[in-house]
């Protein structure tokens, strides 16, 4: 698997990969309107990245992005999430206060009671938290798969079990 699979699998996975990523980003961005959210969309995008990793091999993938960059991305998502919660403490009253709801310029409109119109400009701080958690989940889950695949890419069969290392 370290050298990758056949040319057919590589081509088909390269064609399918943008559709999976667009679908996952749609789930993340519309988390406050349709079912799904940051974790679900991040899991979908990480599944697409894992498909690309399996098709092309871990050596090719580690040349594209390294696990240190993924770790930095995941920490960025975590810091953004906690910073949004702390901004609720600054501008509002308590931790995790939804301080953006009801304002005039960003995600501030309020749908009426029992409204069925999907207005994207609603939700207060929820879309920003969805983006932060989505970035965190994409980077975290793909970092786990990438590190495990790259670390075991040169093993012979049963080498780890026999205690030769």
């Amino acid at each position: 698997m370290s050298m990758g699979m056949s040319k057919i699998v590589k081509t088909v996975s390269s064609v399918v990969f943008p559709f999976i990523v667009i679908y996952g980003l749609y789930i993340i961005a519309h988390g406050h309107l349709t079912p799904g959210g940051g974790f679900q969309g991040g899991a979908v995008v990480a599944s697409g990245c894992a498909m690309l990793l399996v098709a092309h091999g871990s050596i090719w993938t580690i040349g594209k992005i390294r696990e240190k960059q993924l770790s930095i991305l995941e920490s960025t998502g975590a810091v953004a999430f906690i910073l949004l919660a702390l901004l609720g403490l600054v501008f509002g009253t308590v931790f995790f206060k939804n301080f953006l709801v009801g304002n005039k310029f960003l995600f501030g409109e309020i749908p009426g009671y029992l409204s069925r119109v999907a207005n994207f400009n609603t939700g207060g701080v929820l879309p920003l938290m969805n983006f932060a958690v989505g970035l965190k989940v994409i980077a975290g889950l793909f970092a786990i798969v990438l590190v495990m695949a790259y670390a075991t890419s040169t093993f012979k069969k049963g080498e780890m079990e026999d205690g030769k290392r």
Partner: peptide, 17 residues
């Protein structure tokens, strides 16, 4: 969605690795 993404794809990839 979470179960299909994590359970059916990522867990399978990790176990096969």
């Amino acid at each position: 969605i979470a179960e299909a993404g994590v359970g059916a794809c990522l867990t399978t990839a990790i176990l096969i690795i």
